[in-house]
């Protein structure tokens, strides 16, 4: 099977790019390479191409350093185009290194395709700062293939016919159902509807946790009471007391939160006093 017949969508290109990014990412964790990037350009050999034809996208990078490879060079996403080939050539010379990467692409949709510029991340040798060097983008116009206009007309006609058949089918089905539907008065109405299920309010949850704490004061029951108070304010789990106090306008609840923090985090000898104050506040709040 010829290579060009293999299904090689743009996602493959993205996968290649991701792999390169991943390898560059590993290097990135240790720091980017310092490079003097002198050139980074991108061009297509054809700016207009019919469907089914090939085009070549060439990325050229030149760095002042002599490098064996330029893994930092990230090729761009090419949209829906099929990637038929990808070749990279590295040439070292006395004045630096030239890298040419040529992508062979086949457009699959008519219209205008804008390909963003390839890029590479490095420490700029001139400034010493991390920099993203980006090539120019490329715009390609993809024309419909010859004879595709007639195909389009046929395709549109078939779609319209399908829509018409479906609409007739829906109308017929609706009429049939209307005839079979029982009269409205036959609808079943429960004589004794179920009573509404009581939903525990946040205050009820605090009441329950407070009762548990009063029955058996302990670190665990205090922790349960604190969690119920936080939940009563609507604060999400993992919030602090200030988050919770900000989330509510209830002054009593804000005081209770402050006292809960004291009862929870104060030195062991001072917790009882704070707990007594908390009990007084909550008794008022829960009345």
């Amino acid at each position: 099977m010829p290579a060009r017949d293999l299904p090689r969508p743009a996602s493959l290109l993205a996968a290649i790019a991701a792999a390169i990014v991943a390898s560059a990412g590993g290097a990135g964790a240790q720091g980017l390479r310092t490079l003097h990037v002198e050139t980074l350009t991108m061009r297509a050999d054809r700016s207009a191409v019919p469907l089914g034809a090939e085009l070549h996208l060439t990325i050229h990078a030149r760095v002042r350093e002599r490098v064996a490879a330029l893994d930092e060079l990230i090729v761009p996403e090419v949209g829906t185009m099929h990637l038929l080939g990808d070749e990279r050539h590295v040439r070292q010379g006395p004045g630096g290194t030239d890298v040419d990467e040529t992508l062979t692409l086949e457009p699959v949709d008519a219209g205008t395709v804008v390909i963003p510029g390839a890029y590479l991340d490095a420490i700029d040798g001139r400034t010493g700062k991390p920099t993203r060097f980006t090539a120019n983008g490329v715009r390609i116009t993809v024309a419909p293939a010859a004879g595709q206009g007639g195909d389009t007309v046929r395709r549109v006609a078939l779609v319209l016919l399908g829509v018409l058949v479906a609409a007739i089918g829906i109308v017929l089905a609706a009429r049939t159902l209307q005839r079979r539907a029982p009269p409205a008065r036959a609808a079943v109405v429960p004589r004794d509807p179920l009573p509404p299920v009581p939903v525990a309010s946040a205050r009820d949850a605090v009441r329950g946790a407070f009762a548990a704490y009063r029955r058996a004061p302990s670190r665990a029951s205090l922790s349960g009471l604190r969690a119920a108070l936080f939940a009563a304010t609507g604060a999400r789990p993992g919030s602090t007391a200030r988050d919770a106090a900000t989330a509510t306008a209830d002054a009593h609840l804000q005081v209770a939160l402050r006292e809960t923090e004291a009862a929870t985090f104060a030195a062991p000898g001072a917790r009882d006093v704070a707990a007594d104050e908390l009990i007084e506040t909550l008794e008022v709040w829960l009345q």
């Binding site: 964790a29 991340d121 602090t240 007391a241 985090f265 104060a266 030195a267």
Partner: peptide, 24 residues
């Protein structure tokens, strides 16, 4: 006379911001 979680969370940015080395 005791610390609460808000104490830690409030001062954490001032403690951490100069102690981290960031990726390029």
């Amino acid at each position: 006379a005791f610390t609460v979680p808000d104490d830690v969370r409030d001062v954490a940015p001032a403690v951490l911001r100069h102690r981290l080395a960031y990726d390029d």
